[in-house]
């Protein structure tokens, strides 16, 4: 019953600290000779973390404050001049129409796609956890299967299913009288991407929520059932509030993922011209760095995006944290 123990421990940092103050002295005495050990245990991770997490963040910030310019013909070792430009890269990004249209696009995408996916995932998890449903194992595997398909492969797969001439879906819809539906049109392509993401991650999110449901002691709703509560009532009134923290977790990861949107639009560019090189902020950063050879502006885009992501996901977490913890601590 590890999972049942955990919420109390993890959710009460204050208590943990008080306990430490009391037991701390005693513990310290015993482990005095072991001051080096934790350091040694931590060193490999911290060194790599510093090099591959902290350093790139620092370097991106540094890069975003400079501007490199090729002088003359661009030949010779000193042909590139780098100079400090302060926040001008940021202001140029923030005045860039394409950055904002890309940002607006992913925000619109997130507002529509994330709730649909999470409602679907929650509904499926609750259904699979309810007593009246058969074939649970089959459904669980079927829903989770797409997560085993890497994002790029899923995008390639769906790009075939969107492509007129190749796609059986387009032809089936046509013979059903819907006409030729253009999944790759200038307006529809964003929602076609939303479909790919929903297809891939609904099952994964469902599993996180389902795991949360499995951790609820059955005694909590057994009593309600005996009192004659319907399965729907048990799901909505008892289970749903208890899995709130799991849903919050899936929401945070979904928000992060949405703002980083890159692979799917990048892959779909092979089959449609309706995805511009600045379709999402990440695509813009990629284009700036590798097509326009402007790593400084690309760094500024990456910094703004990372900061935005961090603030948004952290803010969302804080916003719901109070509620989440009070629910978890039964």
């Amino acid at each position: 019953m590890t999972t049942i123990d955990l919420p109390g421990r993890a959710g009460e940092p204050a208590n943990l600290k008080q306990g430490k103050a009391v037991a701390g002295k005693e513990r310290m005495k015993r482990s005095r000779g072991n001051k080096v050990a934790p350091l040694l245990f931590l060193t490999p991770f911290m060194v790599l973390f510093a090099i591959f997490f902290l350093l790139p963040i620092g370097y991106a910030i540094y890069q975003s404050l400079y501007h490199s310019q090729v002088s003359g013909l661009g030949l010779g070792p000193n042909s590139t001049v780098t100079k400090f430009v302060g926040l001008s890269n940021f202001s140029s990004v923030l005045h860039d129409h394409s950055f904002f249209s890309g940002l607006g696009r992913v925000i619109l995408f997130g507002i529509v796609q994330v709730p649909i996916m999470l409602v679907l995932a929650t509904l499926l998890a609750l259904l699979l956890d309810s007593a009246t449903v058969r074939l649970k194992r089959f459904f669980r595997l079927a829903f989770f299967l797409p997560y085993g398909v890497p994002g790029v492969i899923a995008a390639i797969l769906w790009s075939f299913l969107y492509l007129p001439g190749l796609s059986p879906i387009v032809s089936v819809l046509k013979s059903a009288g819907f006409g030729t539906i253009n999944f790759l049109g200038i307006h529809s392509v964003l929602w076609s991407i939303a479909n790919i993401i929903t297809w891939e991650y609904t099952g994964y999110n469902m599993l996180i929520i389902y795991a949360g449901l499995q951790a609820i002691p059955p005694s909590l709703f057994e009593a309600a059932r005996i009192d004659g509560a319907s399965e729907i009532m048990v799901s909505l009134r008892i289970k749903l509030p208890l899995i709130f923290s799991s849903i919050v977790l899936t929401a945070v990861f979904s928000i992060i993922g949405t703002l980083q949107l890159f692979s799917e639009p990048q892959v779909l560019r092979a089959v449609t011209t309706n995805i511009s090189s600045s379709f999402t902020p990440n695509l813009l950063a990629y284009t700036k760095a590798f097509v326009e050879n402007d790593p400084n502006t690309a760094a500024a885009v990456a910094v703004i995006l990372a900061l935005g992501t961090f603030i948004l996901s952290f803010g969302f977490l804080k916003l719901v944290q109070r509620r989440a913890f009070s629910e978890v601590e039964l």
């Binding site: 591959f52 997490f53 790139p56 963040i57 370097y59 991106a60 890069q63 945070v252 992060i256 993922g257 703002l259 980083q260 890159f262 990440n282 950063a285 990629y286 760095a289 790593p295 690309a298 760094a299 990456a302 995006l305 990372a306 992501t309 961090f310 996901s313 952290f314």
Partner: peptide
């Protein structure tokens, strides 16, 4: 919470 794609470029 730091997305991997934000790190890739730097």
């Amino acid at each position: 919470l730091v997305p991997g794609t934000a790190l890739a470029l730097p």
